[in-house]
Structures are given as structure tokens and as C-alpha cells.
Amino acid sequence: MPDLIEKTAPATGSTEPKPEKPRSLGSDAWHDLRKRPIFIISAALIVLLIAFAIAPSLFTSVDPRAGDLRLHYLSKPNYLHFFQADWFGYDGQGRSIYARMIYGARASVVVGICVTAGVTVLGGLAGMIAGYYGGWVDAVISRVTDMFFGIPLLLGALVVLNAFTTRTVWSVVFALVALGWTQMTRVMRGSVITVKQSDYVTAAKALGAGTTRIMFKHILPNAIAPVIVVATIALGGYIATEATLSFLGIGLQDPTISWGIDINSAQKVLRTAPFALFFPAGMLSVTVLAFIMLGDAVRDALDPKLR
């Protein structure tokens, strides 16, 4: 958090004395975001989580997969042993809960970011094509979207994942992208249809700009805002869905460390060792919360109507 503030502080200092230049929607939103405490908190949390995901060994030297049942079976947490193996106690396999909390971030962050990127590209492209061309292209894409939209995400993901005998992070990403893209298609399509009627698009056409140029240079930058908002908020949802799938035993599997798996194994010892459930569950909730808060802040910044 400190380095974030340091980075932003001189930037605001240097722009303020200058006369206000007209800003684009993007830089206006960025200008607005930097002043929001909710954005700074959630961004700091997310930076921390990404650091956990990239280099977990920086935060703990304990092997999260090494368990000692004889010494550590459900040992109680020792809250004064900061950053040590027994800080948050040990789970039912005698493994350090603190180490598993840190290492579990990778699966969640990778699933969240990759699924969001996947659905945004796939769904955004489909929505753009449907909205721009209209007519029968739109009819076909919209009906296919409707067909997938009728399948509940969790249910469809269970069916798809059941087909994999060994499931990795990538199978979960595949399943969620395959079923989740429809939401982005609908948002993008609606947004493109509105933007398409603008004068500057007509002007670009009149000047002889090609279809790809109009789509990516003129329409996309003006139609992307609602998609970014929905995508940021959905990111937290995808992380929760991954944990739920892993919790049900149809998501990630054991060598991969996932908070969902840990929540599942902790439920069996819930009465004797509530801390084994509390820490992975708390970590998961904080992660989801951070992404949803970020999405909220981005929406407020991009949609000046709500200010």
C-alpha cells in the first residue's frame, strides 16, 4: 500500500498546477479513481494477492504440502508467532494453514484473471460482431447466446469438469470460459448498438474507413466501458465459483492448493477445529471482496451518472 500512494502522489501534484486539459473518458476515470480510498484499498489487496500468487515462498518458508500427523494434527493456532508455520494452526493432515493460505492464492488469481480475460475476448468479440453487423448475424449469435444462457454456470461447469479425469487450473478455466462468455456478449452487443449510431462512426464511414478500423478504432474504445465494469465485478464471482467447484470435489484436485479444497476438508472437523475453516474461508472472502470493490470503484469512475 505505501508504494502505491507514493507513486500516485507526485503525479497528482504535477498535474494540478497546469490548466485543466480536456481528458479522455479513460484518463478522466483514472484521475477519479486515484482519489478513491476504496480503490486504493482494493488495489493494494490485489497487488498483495498477486505477489502471493507469483512468489509464495517470499511470504513463508514452510512447504504447504508437508504434513506431520503425529506432531501437528489440528494443532491450535499460535497467534503471536507471526508469519510462522503455526501462526494459524495446522489442518487435518498436519499441514500449516498459514502456508496453504499463501499458496492457495495462485489457483484463485490464475482462474479469476484467465477466465475474465477469456470471456471478455470471446464474449466481447461475439457481441461486437452481433451488434455491428445486425440482421441475421445478430439473430444467430443472440440465439446461441440464449441457448448457453439457459444453463446455470455452476451446473454446466460441473458437467464439463466431470469429463476431465485429472483436473488442473486450465480445465477449470476452460469450463468457466465455455459457459460464462454469454454475459459479456450481451453487454457488448447492447453497448455496440448504441455507439454504432453515433455521428463519429458515420463520419468515419464517410471518410472511407474499413470495417476493422471502424470496429476497433472507433467503436471499441467507446463501447468497452460497460464490459470492463461487468468483467471486473465478474472476476470475483469466478474466483468464488472455482472455490465452490473445488469445494464440491469437481474443481481442482489435490496437488493443486485451493482454498475451496481446504474449506471442504475443514468442514469435517468444523466442530473441533473451526480455525481450519475460518482462515481459508476468510482469505477467499477477502479476495472476492477486493475484486468486487475494485469493480465498484471502476464503475463509479466510468459511469459519471452515478456520481
Partner: peptide, 22 residues
Amino acid sequence: TLLLISIPVPVLGFIFQNVFAI
């Protein structure tokens, strides 16, 4: 509501079960 949205359903279920039933 933000907190409610961020607590995943399995966790919420166990919290409720623990508090109201146990």
C-alpha cells in the same frame, strides 16, 4: 451487501449452520 456478495455460499452455509444450529 458488499460483504454478503463476497462471502462464498459454502462459507455462508457453514457460518449459519454453526451459529443457528450448533
